[in-house]
Design a protein around this nucleic acid. Structure first.
Lengths: 193, 193
DNA sequence: GCTGGAAGTTACAGACCGGTAACACCCTAG
DNA sequence: CTAGGGTGTTACCGGTCTGTAACTTCCAGC
């Protein structure tokens, strides 16, 4: 009969959620564990009882973010059951919404930029998660009946990745503003082949 | 009759060059001023006599990097005088070379990711420099006789930006490997309109 | 009510950070 | 030769960082 209120959830969950949010907003190196625990309404010792190090917490945050993103793909399937082309357009739409709603880009890409040590434990996790996302998009393009599915998927990936990082440097009025137009005409052009 | 040897150049120049290199390799927050001065063969006091703060040094580094990039555009003009379309293809080629030679992406974009404070002095510099680069590419596309020059330039920008950040998260074998093919077919498609 | 484990508290270690003060040195322009 | 500016050296300041130790408090299950 545990109380379901978010504010009174288990400390581990609060830490994970708060850390995700703060890493996203201020960057990984821009947030200390003390700040996280304080914002999560707990303390450092409790954090280190649940996560063996800050690096481990970072990895768990990335996994959680990826899992959240993965759930969006389920929405596509639910909204357009079986219609893979419609799901691809929904993907473009969703990407555009993300661009409008948030100017801090992709957590995994940002983490890769910040964590420059080539042997950092988070790097292989980032690579794995990004590869999984790539394969999902390739499969969607292929199932939508597009011939060069890999090429379209990769192009769309780069466009979105570029848009998300471009927003952070030039701002929302820069090249990223044209993302939807670019993506849609790309899809049309690939379908025409 | 000052000795021209690079190792014996003025301390300010050595600091600037070393800082550029180290910020690029290890990120801005991953490098302390002590490490920079030591690598530059000097000391912290000398750094602070030439730069009023680390933030100011960061800004000077970004300006220097942009100036270096700007010189590449002069090469395009020198290699293909008057032939703007050839220069556009040279741009693609050069971008691809950068992708192969270096996996740490764009210093300005990386800095924008790292420096999350919205009022950080480097942010407006980054925006200015990125906007200048954008206008250069737009002008090149326009002068190459492409109708929707802005749209092509912005698409190429996002592709390159995406490729440079994608390399850092997924690696060189990911979507960024197809950059040249994407860019060239984009240019061809825009020329056909 | 008792007990055991989870959580909170305080203090601390050791390292690094950006930035400054005071002073010694060296080398070149006059 | 001398004066002075650029440079090097050392020590320090106050702050922040990750991570730990020792102890107390709380609360649910029995």
């Amino acid at each position: 009969m545990t109380d379901g209120v978010a504010e009174r959830s288990r400390p581990r969950d609060r830490i994970l959620e708060t850390a995700q949010d703060m890493f996203h907003k201020h960057g990984i190196k821009g947030v200390g564990v003390d700040a996280i625990t304080e914002a999560a309404g707990t303390n450092k010792m409790t954090l280190y009882r649940h996560f063996e190090s800050k690096d481990e917490l970072i990895i768990e945050c990335l996994r959680a973010t990826a899992a959240k993103a993965s759930r969006i793909w389920d929405e596509f399937e639910a909204q357009h059951p079986g219609d893979k082309l419609a799901q691809l357009h929904a993907w473009v739409q969703k990407a555009s919404q993300l661009l409008s709603a948030d100017s801090r880009g992709c957590d995994m890409a940002n983490a890769a930029v910040e964590l420059t040590e080539t042997d950092h434990p988070a790097r292989r996790v980032i690579k794995e998660l990004k590869e999984a996302q790539r394969e999902k998009l390739v499969a969607l393009c292929r199932d939508a009946g597009i011939g060069q599915a890999e090429l379209l998927a990769d192009t769309l990936s780069l466009l979105l990745e570029g848009a998300r990082v471009s927003m952070q440097s030039v701002g929302a009025e820069g090249p990223s503003a044209q993302f939807v137009r670019m993506a849609e005409s790309l899809i049309a052009s690939f379908r025409a082949r």
